[in-house]
Design a protein around this nucleic acid. Structure first.
Lengths: 144, 144
DNA sequence: CTTAATTAAGATAAGTTTATCCTAATTAAA
DNA sequence: TTTAATTAGGATAAACTTATCTTAATTAAG
């Protein structure tokens, strides 16, 4: 469903959110160790999230990644997914037609749209804070 | 969402179903022309569908691909998707965790499961006949 | 100011998916 | 039985995704 790149965008974001809530910056090294992902590749994805102003980076000694505490609750999963995979996950024909729309639909158009819209709604209504809280209470996990 | 391979499995199947209803066998050449797909690659996918006994092939002169008329209505989209992409589209963690389940869920587990199940249900409840009929009436399209 | 720690970024490599090409195997028809 | 048409399948190539490595740029601390 999501690309690896997207997975390496979402999982670190949750981890950074959790730590930022506790006032701690984290490094790519710590992140990839905690979420079990390839470090350099994950760092690349983090760069993209920084460019899209979803997370902050602080360079130099004692630097690392963080998210402004008061923004954590307002960052939606959809922002992360769009920053990495683009909007094609919401649009784009299920059967790969270049030009598929209401007036020229593929055979799966309507049924597919329903599901895609639910995915979209889910991503738009899920924020980093709730995900970070579940991690903290040990209800959910970011690795294995 | 689906791989290209899967798209080249579904679209030809609908085209073959439509033609088989009308008693006509079709060749990979005709198929790829009608659905606008790379011929050799599409033919490879068709081979897989033949091996999975979803479509029939007749070798030699005047051969081609067809589907038994009385089976068209009972072939579900899920069979085609599974034959090509496997079942991972229904299982597999949304965030890429190797071992994600009810007892050890990722932060998106529940929300993701809902959507995946709807996709699964949709594929299991959509058969080739209804899709072929929509094509025939010109309500839906297989290319551009 | 210098140093050490750290993110940014470009180059490259490995792996996977997508696509093409060529030859073998099969078969209906003449 | 020969031929022409056709699917099957292996080998190869191209494109894209994933992953790694190396160097540059930045910055806090001493």
């Amino acid at each position: 469903m999501f690309s690896k790149a997207c997975e390496y965008g979402i999982r670190p974001s949750i981890f950074i959110a959790k730590n930022s809530r506790e006032g701690r910056r984290v490094s790519p090294k710590e992140i990839s160790a905690e979420i079990n992902s390839p470090q350099a590749f994950t760092a690349k994805i983090l760069q993209a999230l920084v460019r899209n102003q979803i997370i902050n980076s602080v360079k130099g000694a004692y630097g690392g990644f963080e998210i402004n505490k008061d923004e954590i609750a307002s960052i939606k999963l959809s922002q992360i997914v769009e920053a990495i995979d683009g909007k094609k996950i919401y649009s784009g024909c299920g059967l790969g037609l270049e030009k598929c729309n209401e007036n020229h639909p593929c055979p799966l158009h309507d049924k597919f749209k329903l599901i895609r819209n639910e995915l979209k709604t889910m991503l738009e209504n899920t924020n980093l804070e709730e995900l970070a809280l579940d991690i903290k209470t040990g209800m959910t996990f970011l690795k294995t």
